[in-house]
Amino acid sequence: MATGNDTTSSGMPLVESLQVLRDTRGDDEVVLTVMGTAREWMALGDLHPLDWIYVPSSMGQAPSLGLGMALAQPGKNVVVCNGDGCLLMNLGSLVTITQQAPKNLTLIIFDNGIYEITGGQPTPAIDDDGSRVDYPGLARAAGFQQVHVFDDLVSWQAAARDLIDADGPTFIHLSISPVPGASGPRSPSKAPPRAHAFAKSFRAD
């Protein structure tokens, strides 16, 4: 298996891939970000009341948290932006999600192949020969009926809105370029008051 930190990944830039989501996001939709996606989402501009910046996090639990949100508020779309390293920590969540099958849940995996904020170490999903775990295949095997794969921004941008609107649960795999030297995200403010404010907005009609 891979042993160095020089794993490279061709793919779209993280910031631009998130900007696509930001541009198409509806006013009553939750966007849950974690790790690198949280860092860049905050850098892209003001936060929306239904942004859940999952910082601090329990690594791996973003899909499960999003599942609970989606089940509690079935009339509101919930979009979870997760990393590949995070997904590896909680692969069972794919099965839990398809068992519950919320139509309003979209799980996006931003796959850069590395643990970015700890220095760029390759995940165990990358082999020495560069071969990678087939995350879309895992999602299909776990029962996702809607699985979509994007390697370029133009295609992702063209499809994003329709995929979020479609009946889910939906699994989207984005190939992302690593961000060299990236740091971890910081909580935008104290977590408990943020949770309280988010819940108030999320529960509102």
Partner: peptide, 25 residues
């Protein structure tokens, strides 16, 4: 609603999401 999870760590996170959405998990 009965909501089975695959590992117990999931249970707290799912319950957290449910609570934030107004449910009583």
């Amino acid at each position: 609603s009965y909501l089975g999870v695959c590992r117990e760590g999931e249970a707290w996170a799912v319950a957290a999401g449910l609570y934030l959405g107004g449910a009583r998990p």
